[in-house]
């Protein structure tokens, strides 16, 4: 099937078997290997990408379902020379060890902060309607779909918290 995807702001036209996952389309057909394959069945979160701004597990979604969609991968956030705020905070907090889950953590955190800003509650939110304050417990709960076997969780939580604080400051200024 022929589909067109907007990947990191670049339009890509692909001719794919209908059974190819979005993850395999990115990695094997577009050479975007920043998105990782951990478990390939939606349990580890290493393949998290944004589709039209929402975080999804790319391994659980077929590429042909996304004809015309905007896909953002870790390569779309920043480069080693020009990182975005979240990426910089992961570096300064050591928010990883082996680094394999890191792209998924960063994409998930990006989507998660947007969800929180829109007022989406989590399992640990006090209120279902009032906007949630992204404290440590909220971050931990909202990031529970992204596994890190090195268990760098303390630093991951710190990195996200600091990026959120920086973004909130920027938003106010």
């Amino acid at each position: 099937m022929k589909i067109t995807l907007d990947v990191n702001g670049v339009e890509k036209t692909l001719d794919l078997d209908a059974r190819v996952t979005l993850l395999d389309a990115l990695r094997d057909h577009m050479g975007l290997t920043g998105t990782k394959k951990g478990c390939d069945h939606g349990q580890c979160g290493a393949c998290t990408v944004l589709v039209d701004g929402r975080r999804i597990n790319a391994c659980l979604s077929l590429a042909v379902m996304h004809d015309g969609d905007q896909v953002t991968t870790v390569e779309g956030l920043g480069t080693p020379e020009e990182m975005n705020t979240l990426q910089r905070e992961f570096v300064s907090c050591d928010g990883y060890q082996c680094g394999y889950c890191t792209p998924g953590q960063i994409m998930s955190a990006t989507g998660m902060m947007a969800e929180a800003a829109e007022g989406a509650p989590s399992h640990v939110s006090e209120s279902l309607t009032a906007p949630a304050d992204l404290d440590d417990a909220e971050i931990a709960e909202r990031m529970s779909g992204n596994l890190c076997r090195c268990s760098a969780y303390p630093f991951i939580r710190e990195a996200i918290s600091r990026a959120h604080a920086a973004q909130t400051r920027e938003g106010r200024e």
Binding site: L32, T33, G34, T35, T73, V74, E75, L77, G78, T79, P80, M83, Q87, F90, V91, S92, D94, G95, Y96, Q97, G99, T102, P103, I106
Partner: peptide, 13 residues
């Protein structure tokens, strides 16, 4: 920081 820090966070590692 880790020697590949900048590569890890940008998917370049």
């Amino acid at each position: 920081e880790h020697d590949s820090a900048h590569l890890h966070v940008t998917g370049a590692a």
